[in-house]
């Protein structure tokens, strides 16, 4: 099992694997997002209370899910990088950070745009909103720390530790609406009993969530490939690959 992992975790195999996966991921993302947006914005029925405004859920909720999911990927691959010194794990962690930060910002901005007409305020310091803002700062801290340390391996180790410390924020974000009195409503979909949402509204949401997830993989692999090109530019296999492609 270990030899299998080590083989695929080598930069060369990862580079070639990513090359094959990227077009598939890109096209499936595009199709899912087009279908999901059409279903969500046009086909899905209006809400009994919020009218049309609830449709921001089709961007806001998948973005918020992704902000937490990407953080977990980042922290896990950071831990793998720390323990097993696998270069590709560090590359995945550092490539994920800006994408995760973007999703977090998107969740905060769309939530704010929805909050003004529905709640009556752009922002309120409740536990859910504040912990999501802390998540954005964790991402930004990760990015800043990485660019502040010159040596690549030291930077990767320091960032992995930062990411692991921040993991504690993820359950806080998820359970904030249960543990404390918040203005933000409780979970609609990610709870033990059945989702508190009509199926006709839920399906476009799940399509969008899958689309966002594939987009993340697509964007992350693109970034990892660039990192491999940069770090492996002096290796024989890379030289052969590049000159071979030119012939």
């Amino acid at each position: 099992m270990w030899s299998f992992i080590h083989k695929h975790a080598s930069p060369k195999h990862f580079y070639l694997l990513a090359e094959r996966l990227i077009p598939w991921l890109g096209w499936s993302t595009l199709i899912l997002l087009v279908v999901g947006l059409y279903q969500g914005l046009i086909v899905a029925p209006t809400d009994y209370q919020q009218g049309e405004s609830y449709r921001i859920i089709y961007v806001h909720v998948p973005a918020a899910w992704m902000s937490m999911f990407i953080y977990m990927v980042m922290a896990t691959s950071g831990a793998i990088g720390l323990v097993w010194k696998i270069k590709m794990a560090d590359a995945v962690a550092s490539s994920s950070a800006p994408i995760g930060a973007a999703f977090t910002l998107l969740a905060l901005v769309t939530g704010s745009l929805w909050g003004k007409p529905m709640w009556g305020t752009w922002w309120v310091w409740d536990a859910r909103l504040t912990s999501e803002l802390i998540l954005l700062f964790l991402y930004l801290g990760f990015i800043a720390l990485e660019s502040a340390i010159e040596d690549r391996r030291t930077a990767a180790n320091a960032c992995a530790v930062l990411a692991l410390v921040g993991v504690v924020n993820i359950p806080i974000i998820h359970y904030s609406v249960e543990w404390w009195n918040t203005l933000h409503q409780g979970a609609t979909v990610t709870r033990f009993d059945k989702p508190a949402m009509a199926t006709s509204m839920l399906i476009p949401l799940l399509i969008m969530a899958l689309g966002f997830k594939l987009y993340y993989l697509y964007a992350m692999l693109l970034r990892v490939r660039v990192k491999i090109l940069e770090s492996e530019k002096d290796t024989t296999w890379m030289k052969e690959l590049i000159t071979g492609a030119k012939k």
């Binding site: 209006t46 009994y48 209370q49 709640w119 409503q185 508190a196 009509a198 509204m201």
Partner: peptide, 12 residues
């Protein structure tokens, strides 16, 4: 005064 929305979504 802020409105607190619940987690239920359904058509009218």
């Amino acid at each position: 005064v802020l409105a607190k929305h619940d987690e239920n979504y359904m058509p009218p």
